[in-house]
């Protein structure tokens, strides 16, 4: 119970800050802030496979695309549908779904896609998995570009409503953090980490390795789908390039900067790497040199890998709770801490 107090306090603070921001910031900064919430969703969820089970996926944007297109088709106003999507089946043509439901639907569809995909690609590990998941992204991009009747190909779907307010993006961020934290610091989380550290040893200890990896992959895909929907309804349009490899790359950077295997690290990484590119883009405009921002970011990533491979947080967590008494720090990332020692 005492653990809940600082968390609640944090939530209240967050709500207050968001309300303040909502009132005082102009639309440009509000957009950046909203983007920050979306990136938190994406980074924290990508941490499940990439940081916790050690399955380095590069296909996050593929699941975002699935969720984003799905939600976009569902929320698109009837007028736009009549104009843009004439070949949809009638029932889809005539339905408009509220944004929250469409977002969940997008997440669910992404998770549904992740099931068969995971069954196939998770038979691989390491580099092979990385390339196979990029392959998935390219396949999804190919479908998005060529499935004219649903995606309108390269033209994409435009005229979406700007549903993604600060409240939605940060609301989902909180949900994502909550779910991933509960998964990470539970017996399931210990199973994930043991797989990352040594799959064989984990299997010997009775961890159901494949199932655990699959669950992590699917949950991650769900939130990617949600993030895809949030992004679509912030920029009010989706095209194949909305979910290009660039997005995967940016989220990977956020993950690496924060520290793979740390939930709070992911949040910190997402916050920093939302703000930094914005600043760099200003610089780019001033210098009038296209590419500067991306160049600096890529260089910083390399430097990070060379000099601080574990990211800012490593696998540690940042916790306010620690200051409120010794008991508060009990959900520890140390794998076996809560297991009672047995004489062996």
């Amino acid at each position: 119970m005492r653990r809940a107090i600082p968390v609640l306090a944090g939530l209240v603070l967050l709500v207050a800050l968001l309300a303040l921001a909502d009132m005082s910031l102009n639309s440009y900064y509000l957009r950046i802030l909203g983007l920050m919430g979306i990136y938190i969703v994406l980074t924290v969820s990508l941490n499940l496979p990439n940081g916790f089970t050690g399955d380095f996926s590069l296909g996050h944007a593929a699941f975002m695309a699935v969720g984003g297109y799905c939600a976009a088709v569902l929320t698109m106003p009837l007028v736009s549908k009549e104009l843009l999507l004439t070949e949809l089946p009638t029932w889809l043509q005539e339905t408009v779904v509220p944004f929250p439901i469409a977002t969940v639907a997008g997440g669910l569809l992404a998770a549904l896609v992740a099931l068969p995909v995971g069954l196939v690609v998770l038979r691989l590990r390491g580099h092979y998995l990385a390339v196979a998941t990029i392959g998935l992204l390219i396949v999804v991009q190919g479908i998005a570009t060529n499935w004219d009747s649903v995606t309108r190909g390269a033209r994409g779907l435009s005229g979406l409503q700007p549903h993604t307010t600060l409240w939605w993006s940060f609301g989902w961020a909180v949900v994502t953090i909550f779910v991933v934290w509960r998964m990470a610091y539970s017996p399931f989380g210990r199973a994930m980490v043991s797989i990352r550290d040594d799959p064989l040893a984990a299997a010997c200890r009775g961890v159901r390795v494949f199932r655990t990896r699959l669950v992590a992959f699917i949950v991650s895909a769900f939130f990617a789908g949600v993030g895809g929907s949030l992004l679509a309804h912030q920029i009010t349009a989706v095209t194949p390039s909305t979910y290009s490899f660039d997005v995967t790359f940016l989220v990977i950077i956020m993950l690496v900067v924060g520290g793979m295997g740390s939930v709070t690290g992911s949040v910190i990484g997402a916050v920093i790497m939302t703000v930094v590119p914005v600043l760099l883009r200003d610089l780019e405009r001033e210098l009038d040199m296209v590419g500067t921002a991306q160049l600096v970011i890529a260089g910083a990533l390399i430097a990070f890998m060379i000099f601080r491979r574990q990211g800012l947080m490593g696998t540690r967590e940042f916790r306010l709770a620690g200051r409120f008494g010794p008991k508060a720090s009990s959900p520890s990332p140390a794998p076996d801490q809560s297991q009672t020692p047995t004489s062996s």
Binding site: G54, F56, G126, H127, V256, L295, I297, A298, G299, I302
Partner: peptide, 20 residues
Amino acid sequence: VAMLITSLGVSRLLQNSTVM
């Protein structure tokens, strides 16, 4: 994984120095 991420970074670096 560290090498893999680095090579992604190098890839981006080369692309964007050409852009720039």
